[in-house]
Amino acid sequence: MTTTSERQMLPRPVRAGTSLLMLGGSIAMVAMMLHICADVLSRRFLGTPIVGTLEYVTYLYMVAVVFLPLGRVQEERGHVIVEVVSQLMPARVNLWVDRGAQLFTLAYVTFIAWWGWMETVRSFTRNEVVTVIQTDFPLWPTRLLVPLGLAAMSFVIVVQLAQSFRSGSQPPHSDPAAH
Rank of each mutant, 00 (worst) to 15 (best):
A91H: 12
S154G: 13
H179Y: 03
T131H: 09
A178Y: 00
D98A: 09
D98G: 12
Y59W: 07
L70E: 14
V57E: 15
S169C: 12
L60I: 04
S154W: 01
Y59G: 06
W117N: 09
M62R: 05
V121D: 15
P11Q: 04
E6H: 03
E55F: 00
I81P: 11
V130L: 11
E6G: 05
T131Y: 09
E83F: 00
L148N: 04
G116T: 05
V51Q: 14
I50H: 08
T125Y: 07
S164R: 06
E83G: 07
G52N: 08
G100F: 09
T135C: 09
M153Y: 02
C37Q: 07
H35D: 15
M29F: 04
A38M: 12
N94S: 12
M89V: 05
I50K: 11
Q8R: 09
V30L: 14
G116I: 03
G71F: 03
L10Q: 02
T2A: 15
D175H: 01
Q170K: 12
M153E: 12
R77H: 11
P138Y: 00
E128V: 00
G78M: 02
L161F: 03
F155A: 10
A91K: 13
F67S: 00
C37Y: 07
P69F: 02
M33E: 12
A177I: 10
V156K: 01
P171E: 06
R15I: 09
R72P: 09
I81L: 13
L161I: 06
L139S: 02
A162F: 03
M62D: 11
Y61A: 06
Q170D: 14
M32H: 01
S26R: 03
P90H: 07
A113H: 00
M9I: 01
E55V: 01
T120P: 15
H179R: 07
V97T: 12
S19E: 10
H173C: 10
P49V: 03
S19W: 03
H79W: 10
Q8G: 05
Q163G: 12
T125Q: 14
V82Q: 14
R7T: 02
D98Q: 10
Y61M: 11
L95I: 03
L103N: 06
V121P: 13
M62I: 06
L150S: 07
L68K: 00
L145Y: 02
S26D: 13
L21Y: 01
I50L: 15
G168H: 07
G47F: 01
A64Q: 10
Y108M: 14
T110N: 10
S26Y: 02
Q170T: 12
S86I: 01
M29H: 01
D175M: 04
T135E: 15
G116K: 04
T120C: 15
S19D: 14
L106V: 04
V158D: 15
D175A: 02
E128R: 00
L70H: 08
R99G: 08
D175I: 00
Y56F: 03
E119N: 09
S86E: 15
V130A: 11
V130T: 12
V65R: 01
V66H: 07
E128N: 02
F67C: 05
C37F: 09
T125V: 09
G168L: 11
S164V: 00
M9Y: 00
R166N: 10
T135F: 05
P13W: 04
V51A: 13
T110P: 13
M22Q: 06
